[in-house]
Amino acid sequence: MREFSSTARAVAWRSLHITFTNPALLAPALIFPLMFYVAFAGGLSSVGDLPGFEYSAGYDTFQFGFVLLQASAFGGVFSGFGIAADFERGFARRYMLSAPRREAIIVGYLLGALGRAAITTSLLTVVALVTGMRPQSSAADVAGLVLLVALTCTAAMLFACGVAMRLKTVQAGPAMQMPVFLVLFLAPVFVPLDLVAGWVHGVATVNPVTALMTGGRDLLAGEAVSELLVFGTAIALAGGFAVWALRGLRSAERTGS
């Protein structure tokens, strides 16, 4: 157990240390959500006036619900890029060689991803609040949001980690990013689910991200949340991708790192 936590802490330390000494590395994880927030919350606010668009905390907050999840998920995906780069450059060998329990490597990368997601989502929240977003969350809602962000980041990171450990090259970047990008945009991004038209409506209805996004928006508006659906979905996703990531680790061990 002591060895496990020692490995995990060492791996997490490196991720975070590199981030703090090179803040520019956070830029992509921050620029995309910010850009989306500015463009959607700023440019599309009249969409909030549509008949049938019912959301009490305003269009800014509605879009923040999307962007917050996006930043969390992309934080996880960008960690996957780091893992792939470590395997490609051979740095992962150092971890594989010195870790008595190799599962701890994944946990370490995950802690690093969560740390970075905490920074980007906090910055994003500050920008949104300063530019006029007015959420109606209680303290309990905020705690729920933090948990949701953490679970989303965890699920995305474990997904990307599984891909990275199987393919072991930075060329795998799109294979990590595109699916996450797709499931995020195939959720109700611009309007509530009821107002989404056509085939996207059908896809969004069964897309698990819809539950997370709707839940996040409800928490931002201080409205009742179906905890079981929202957090149950998030935990199920994180759990499923944990298995995926562990099998990725086994695949990396089998094929040589």
Partner: peptide, 17 residues
């Protein structure tokens, strides 16, 4: 094309503005 597909479905309601 993907963005067109997503936006035209997601923002279809905007044409009623």
């Amino acid at each position: 094309m993907l963005l067109v597909a997503i936006n035209s479905a997601g923002l279809d309601a905007a044409s009623e503005l």
